[in-house]
Structures are given as C-alpha cells and as structure tokens.
Design a protein around this nucleic acid. Structure first.
Ligand SMILES: [Mn+2]
Ligand SMILES: [Mn+2]
Ligand SMILES: [Zn+2]
Ligand SMILES: [Zn+2]
Lengths: 141, 141
DNA sequence: TGACAAACGCAACTCAGTTGCGTTACGATG
DNA sequence: CATCGTAACGCAACTGAGTTGCGTTTGTCA
C-alpha cells in the first residue's frame, strides 16, 4: 500500500474524506491485479472489515472512477468490473469455463493505426476502445 | 429478405417451426445493419406486427443464437445486442453522446498475430474476441 | 383431421445497479 | 477540545434486463 500516499493526496484535492471504508476499499484494489466486481468488493470488505452497505460500495466506486483512481472494464457478463487506473494499459483473457481473468499486454501500435484509418472514413473520433479475449485458460484446456 | 430462404432451411433442420413471430423477427434483422437489443426488437415487432411477449423474444433470440443464425455483441451498457451472424466479421464504433452504432471493418492480421503471441505466454487458447471503439460520431463531434 | 412437440403468454422471480431521505461522522476552524 | 458544515452512510424501495415455471395455443406431419 505504498502507492496509497499519492492517492490520498488526490482524494484531498477533490475534498474526499479519508473514511475507514474508503481506505479499506482502495486497499483491496492493491491486493488484486485483475478486475473486481462491486459484489467482489462488497464481500471482501465485509469479510475483512465491518459490514458495509452495497449502496456505499456503488457510490464509492463511482466517486473513485470520477477522479480517475479506478477505471471500468466489461468482461462479457452483465456486471461492471473495476481496476486501478494507475496500472499500465492492458487487456484481458477471460476463461469461458472457470471464469478466471488474466491481464494481457499487447503492442497496439498496428491496431491503433488501422483503427484510426477505419474510423476516419466515418468521421468518427475514437476516445477509448475495449478489447477482451475469451477462451480457455491454462488449467481448463 | 432473399437470404431468408436458406435460413428457413436451417430452421427446418433444427425442427424449428416457421411461426409468424419467428418469421417477423428474422425479417427485422434484415432491415438493420447494426446490432439490436431485445427491447429494440420487441418494440419493432409490436409496432409492425401484433403484440408479442418479451419472454417470447428472449427465448427466440436464444434459439436463433444457438443454431448460429444470429450472434451477440456487447456495446458497453448492460444490454445484450444481436445481429445476423451471416454478416462479415466486423467491429463497432459507439457514439458516447447520441449512442449511434456504426460497423467498422478492420484488417486484423497484425492484431491476431500479436494476440496469439501474448496469449501463448499464458497458455491461453483464444476462441473469440470482442473489440469495440467508443467516441464521438460524425454528427456529435 | 388428429396428435404431439414446439411455441406462446403470463406472472413471478433474480440480479446488478440506482434513488430519496433521514442519520452519522470527518475534518476544518476557532 | 467544542462546534459546525458537508461528505458519507444505511436503509428501503425502486428500475431494467433477463429468467423460470406452468398451463394454453399452434404448427407440422402422418
Ligand atoms: Mn487497449
Ligand atoms: Mn474482430
Ligand atoms: Zn479456466
Ligand atoms: Zn453521436
């Protein structure tokens, strides 16, 4: 939790208080390198710390997202997943059998060029992209 | 609706009957080149044809997906979107302002190579991928 | 035309996420 | 340390997408 210091500074700038729940929630993100759902976070919060309400978790995730501490990912189901925004840009391998998620690092230079070319044809200004892979993990294939 | 003929054959093979609703629903897919949500389909079905129940729409979409007539896409919200599987492999530009969706064709050779290399490191067998772009459309930027 | 399975409608349900509102507590200021 | 404004909180009720069970209707084929 060494990186937390600069996060606490960001919080202060945005007039966000250092509540117990918030500190614990941010701590959880540092314990996991793959994306977490609101439910994952709620469970871990309630196991390790005292009971927290789901509304609090959702509102907190929204706030942290708004100030750029965390980002969101979609992994094929109806849930939203969250991960630290500070981590380097990457994508995900999602196992269709055991649902395990792994991070994957890609050289996206070629992809970006190609996407830019194709989007320009439609006069579309690309701001973000989402790229995820689905298949079978080491254990499941 | 000329391509429908071969679809009707596929239906027969799978012992799926040619009901009015099913015929109408498949017809709707030929009228749109971008993905449709269950709600979109329900609305259009009820406007153009007689009232249809949402359960019927969901069950029908599942059946058509199972036999490979339609495929599903995720476009960033919680909904599932459906489009004809017969169309050539492509991706989507999603406008963050007006929510319009456009198809985009990419040369994915480089991407596939790169993804294969990266997935191999983790012994992951990739079966599908999802790649969507978010930004501002011609009208909105 | 009758029988059988596929398809249907309806109501009740799940699950993720949201909203309104009254209460609690962080932290700045004196 | 006491006070006070606002951020944060819990709770209950709600939304919207999708699912399930069950009894009824309808398409297909003999
Ligand atoms: Mn990327
Ligand atoms: Mn593709
Ligand atoms: Zn697996
Ligand atoms: Zn737009």
């Amino acid at each position: 939790m060494e990186h937390s210091e600069e996060i606490f500074t960001i919080l202060k700038v945005h007039h966000l208080r250092l509540t117990k729940t918030r500190k614990a929630l941010i701590g959880i993100f540092f314990l996991h390198e793959t994306p977490l759902s609101a439910r994952d976070i709620l469970r871990e919060l309630c196991e390790v710390h005292r009971a927290v309400n789901k509304t609090t978790v959702y509102r907190e995730l929204e706030r942290l997202q708004k100030i750029g501490i965390i980002g969101t990912v979609r992994l094929g189901d109806r849930k939203q997943y969250y991960e630290l925004a500070a981590r380097e840009h990457h994508h995900h391998l999602v196992c269709l059998k055991c649902e395990k998620v792994e991070n994957i690092m890609l050289d996206e230079k070629k992809l970006k060029e190609e996407a830019k070319r194709a989007a320009a044809v439609k006069n579309f200004l690309t701001l973000r992209h989402s790229l995820e892979f689905f298949g079978l993990c080491k254990m499941c294939n």
